[in-house]
Structure formats: C-alpha cells, structure tokens
C-alpha cells in the first residue's frame, strides 16, 4: 500500500524513466489511429509519473483496497494517459493498450467507471470530478480515514459552473485532505482557450484554497508540490500546473490545434523516433 517510491528513496532518474515509459504507452495506443487526445496525455506524463510512482497510495494487487488514496481524473477524454499509467502499475495488461478506442475494448476514448480497474469516476461530461472529490474527502474524513483525495481538472473545464460550486463547498467544509491539480494546457475543443481564465491562481485563493503554481512538466516542481500539499493544513489545496500539450515530441508540441491531434499515417515512425531521441 505504498507508491513505488517513498521520499526516502526519491530518484528523479526513476521518475524520468517512468514519464518516458508512460509516453511510450500512450504512443502504443495512438499509433495508426490518425487522431486522438494524445497531446493532453503527453503533457501530463510527468504529473502521472510523480502521482503514481511517488505520492498516491494504492495496492497493486487490489484496486478497491479500502485504505487507498482516491484519484479522480475529471477530464475523461484524457483516458489515454490513465490507460498508460494503469498499464504501468499492472491494473491492465500492457498488450491491451493497442485496443484503445477500438469497438468492444474497455480502453475507451473517455473513462467509464466500472469497466477498468483503477477508474474511480466517469469523466466525459466535464465539471463532475471536483464535486465528487469533495464528497469523497468528506466521506473519508467521516470514517476517520487517513487516505487522501487527489483530483485532476483542467483550465478549460473551469468554464463549467459546477466547478465553482464544488470549490465553494470544499472551502466551506475545510477539506484539507483534498489536493486538486489544474492542468493549464491552454487548449479546449474549439482551439486555444475561448474565454480567459487568468488570473487563475488568484481565483482559487479568493475561493479559500491554498494554491501552489508550478511548471507541470518539471518533475522537481511536481515533487515539491506534493511535499507542499502534505505539509499544509486547514484548507483544500490547488496545484496549478502549466503544461505543454504534446510535450516530449517536438513535432506534436508545435501543432497549433493540439486538442484533438491528427497524425498522418506516415508520421508515426518519425514521432516514435523523436520521442526516443528526446529522452535519450
């Protein structure tokens, strides 16, 4: 019931290798499909590496272990990233990854609760995760549990008003066992963010949250944010992560419309080679 790596054995080389492996796991899913949410997934490889291999408490043998920490990924269309990490921790077989998005595959384009071990919520309709996380934080506290609740949300998702209802509730009920991660990648379905969200950190502070702002593609800063979240008490915590969609593959980072990436059939070899060169 501990993550692979504790503070005592913190190894950035290990976390870097895991982030690289997560990107490989994502490419395996995307290859040949021509399109998908690969950009968002690549942008969160460092986050998922630090969350699952440094911070989150889970049982590799039992996805339903009662004393596990909870992780709610609110942006269900990032499923490609979740499948990558769930395969890496052994909840799903790696040879299932290429079935991503295929008919009858449980690895759907959006997360559906109950079909894949380790998926704690159905995330396709945006604006659900934060409220569910607040309820789970209250529920664990009521039980006297030491487990914590982690939730991922995104800059575009903050346009959903339900987010702010949940933000108000979390502060009102002093959910300090709740840590939220805001993926600020600057994109949404219609392209670049269509309405401004800045100053986003100030907004969360004004709602009564403790806020920590980092480069979401920096392993060091992510580990620092986890330490900060463990140390602060009394308020719900928000880690604002600035991330780069397509991170790790130069030609995808450069794509302007990275929300739903389209890739030509002859590009996959180049992409794969770029990923290995970048991480060599």
């Amino acid at each position: 019931m501990t993550p692979a790596l504790t503070n005592d054995t913190l190894s950035f080389a290990f976390l870097k290798e895991k982030a690289h492996q997560l990107r490989r796991n994502m490419l395996v899913q995307a290859v040949g499909k021509g399109q998908g949410y690969l950009g968002q997934g690549l942008g969160l490889a460092e986050f998922f590496s630090v969350l699952y291999f440094h911070e989150l408490k889970y049982d590799p043998q039992d996805p339903h272990a009662k004393n596990r920490d909870r992780f709610y990924m609110s942006t269900g269309h990032y499923s490609i990233a979740l499948w990558a990490v769930l395969a890496e921790i052994g909840y799903i077989p790696k040879d299932m990854l290429p079935t991503y998005g295929a008919d009858e595959s449980p690895l759907e384009m959006s997360t559906i609760e109950g079909r894949v071990p380790g998926v704690e919520m159905t995330g396709g309709s945006l604006g659900h995760g934060l409220g569910i996380a607040v309820g789970a934080a209250l529920g664990l506290r009521l039980k006297g549990s030491q487990s914590r609740v982690f939730v991922e949300t995104s800059d575009g998702e903050l346009q959903e008003g339900s987010t702010w209802e949940a933000a108000t509730a979390a502060a009102a009920f002093k959910c300090d066992n709740l840590v939220a991660f805001l993926d600020c990648n600057g994109i949404q379905a219609d392209g670049m963010l269509v309405v401004p969200i800045e100053p986003v950190a100030d907004k969360w502070r004004a709602f009564g949250w403790d806020v920590f702002e980092i480069d979401g593609n920096s392993l060091e800063q992510l580990v620092g944010a986890m330490q900060w979240a463990r140390a602060t008490r009394g308020k719900p915590k928000m880690v604002v992560m600035r991330t780069k969609p397509g991170k790790g593959i130069a030609r995808l980072e450069a794509r302007e419309q990275a929300h739903f990436i389209r890739v030509d059939a002859d590009e996959w070899d180049l992409i794969s080679r770029e990923l290995e060169q970048e991480n060599a």
């Binding site: 607040v134 309820g135 529920g139 009521l142 339900s162 209802e165 509730a169």
Partner: peptide, 16 residues
C-alpha cells in the same frame, strides 16, 4: 448549489 449537492453525494457514496 444543486450540482454540488449531487456530485458531493456521489463522492460520499464512493467512500461507502
């Protein structure tokens, strides 16, 4: 805040 009402309830149910 009916959206919070229902999602918070959904979170409580997920913790038993």
């Amino acid at each position: 805040a009916e959206q919070a009402l229902v999602t918070v309830a959904a979170g409580l149910s997920r913790t038993g």
